[in-house]
Write a protein that binds this DNA or RNA. Structure first.
Length: 480
RNA sequence: AGCGGGGUAGAGGAGAGGUACCUCGGGAGGCUCAUAACCUCCAGACCCCGGUUCGAUUCCGGGCCCCGCAACCA
């Protein structure tokens, strides 16, 4: 058996200025399903996620609450860790951009890029919105004001910042993005390519300390603090131990392995353009593939607190349980396009797919098995997965993979209706037992395919089969 | 302004030059192993106007509408 390539997988790091969003829950669940699947088929996997914890917005909020910055972000980091438990995630590291080793790595990549001549200092003058702590571009202005803060007068501010010479990497990025597969779905790659061809501007990568004092220090310049990019993006490699690589994870997973990043569709510029240029400048291998998903809306609108249509992942877990929440978000969120989700819809899908579907199938098959089989079936040989299932997962289409598993659930239900083993057992016991054995055996295969998506359910079904015992109901009916 | 995606039964998706599939929901029958579950059948759709074509919902042009991006929203 040939040694399979190690695989690295990461989500983006959510900014911790709010509680976990259901969209991030979907992203991290997709990552988790892929990580579990890859491990299942024999790859060594490093699955990374975590939190992005710097920036003036967070510092201001901490100040408002009278908390220390670290305490404030600790609280949110903890909320995101809880999400990991609530969703039963199998990540290998939960990185925080406030972790000591990450700060060292961020400074290290900065120095490499500086040494490579891609970081320079430049005076920058422009309209600045105090509300957003951001410079405004002319195209941002609405009636000469910041669109987010129409009551505040933008101020003309001049400051000196470091810039990264993204424009130098136009040709490189064009080459990088010309290879099919570096961005999924394919049409997003074309979008990225078009953006690069449209011309790239160098971007600002630091702020004066007076304007931003909660971040990683710029090496050898007391007055400057890193602005998001060199800080946040570097997590993808600092998590592996770069640059020292004491444990060899960076070499194994990033340099010699296959790297995949998952991100929202708004992240193309950051993940597939800026980050790739930074890696090139620092002499680090490019990401092999970035997969971009859509957003989740509710009731046809963007979720927002003022509309009252936010769905909190913790509420979903409280309502449906961990396994069912995984099912709902993995099967009923489109892999690449936007998806709309409402509680009413999720309730229907929960009942149809889990209570009436999988749960009921397990109950009826295992009841027959327990009643009519003298002993458990022998565990079916692991002969590799069905082509449809494998292809869907290779294409990052988890929805299609789960759909395939449920097509098998449907087939088993049909087969029971057609062959009527519960009736046949009265007239031809041998034939009935053969049918039941086959049903149980195929149910075992369903459970195996279920593992990446619903690991506990998969295990419970397999155990029930190997003990020849009907388990407790897997999914209870919703109240009301 | 521009760039990108899209408009298919009540809802969400798939698909193809010869009027269309899946899931959920609705209706009728059947079954009794199962969580009033399951199976079968039925009703129900290709945004509008032109063009190409023997034939378009599918290709082309135009229109209308929706969504995303527009350099820190997952």
């Amino acid at each position: 058996m040939s040694e399979k390539k190690a695989r690295y997988l990461t989500t983006t790091l959510p900014y911790v200025n709010a509680d976990p969003h259901v969209g991030f829950a979907a992203e991290v669940l997709n990552a988790d399903a892929l990580a579990r699947y890859w491990r299942l088929i024999g790859h060594e996997v490093f699955f990374n996620t975590g939190t992005d914890e710097h920036g003036q917005k967070l510092a201001d909020k901490a100040d408002e609450k009278g908390q220390s910055r670290q305490d404030y972000v600790d609280h949110f980091a903890n909320e995101f860790r809880k999400l990991g438990e609530a969703l039963n995630l199998s990540y290998d590291r939960f990185i925080r951009t406030t972790d000591a080793d990450h700060k060292i790595a961020a400074q290290a990549i900065w120095k490499k890029c500086l040494l490579n001549g891609d970081i320079y200092k430049k005076k920058y003058k422009g309209l600045y919105c105090v509300g957003d702590e951001m410079f405004l571009r002319d195209s941002d202005l609405v009636d000469g004001k910041c669109p987010n803060h129409p009551n505040m007068e933008p101020q003309m501010v001049e400051e000196e910042n470091y810039f990264f010479a993204l424009s130098k990497y136009q040709d490189y990025l064009k080459d990088y993005l010309s290879k099919e597969g570096v961005v999924e779905p394919e049409w997003r790659r074309l979008e990225a390519l078009k953006f690069v061809e449209g011309g790239l501007e160098d971007f600002s990568i630091s702020r004066e300390r007076s304007r931003l004092d909660w971040g990683i220090d710029v090496p050898d310049d007391e007055n400057q603090v890193m602005y998001v990019w060199f800080d946040a993006l570097t997590n993808y490699i600092s998590t592996l131990g770069w640059p020292e690589d004491k444990d060899g994870n960076f070499k194994k997973f990033w340099e010699e392995g296959e790297t995949t990043q998952l991100a929202g569709k708004d992240q193309i510029r950051f993940q597939s353009i800026m980050w790739q240029a930074m890696l090139k400048s620092a002499g680090v291998k490019a990401t092999d593939k970035v997969v971009y998903h859509g957003f989740i809306t509710s009731g046809g609108q963007k979720m927002s607190k003022s509309l009252g249509n936010t769905l909190n992942p913790f509420d979903l877990v409280a309502r449906y349980g961990t396994e069912a929440t995984r099912y709902l978000l993995l099967r009923h969120v489109h892999p690449f396009e936007d998806s709309d989700i409402t509680i009413e819809r999720l309730d229907e899908l929960y009942t149809a797919g889990l209570v009436n579907g999988l749960g009921n199938l397990v109950a009826r098959v295992m009841k027959m098995a327990e009643t009519h089989l003298d002993e458990p079936i022998t565990r079916p040989e692991a002969v590799g997965f069905a082509k449809e299932y494998v292809e869907a997962l290779d294409n990052f289409n988890i929805q299609a993979a789960v759909d395939y598993v449920w097509s098998k659930v449907g087939e088993l239900d049909e087969r029971i209706a057609e062959t009527e083993p519960f009736k046949l057992v009265k007239t031809d016991k041998t034939a009935a037992i053969k049918i039941i054995t086959d049903l149980v055996s195929d149910l075992y295969i369903v459970a195996r395919m279920l593992h990446p998506f619903m690991p506990d359910t998969s295990r419970i079904i397999k155990e029930a089969i190997l003990q020849n015992k009907k388990p407790e109901n897997l999914f209870n009916r919703l109240e009301g």
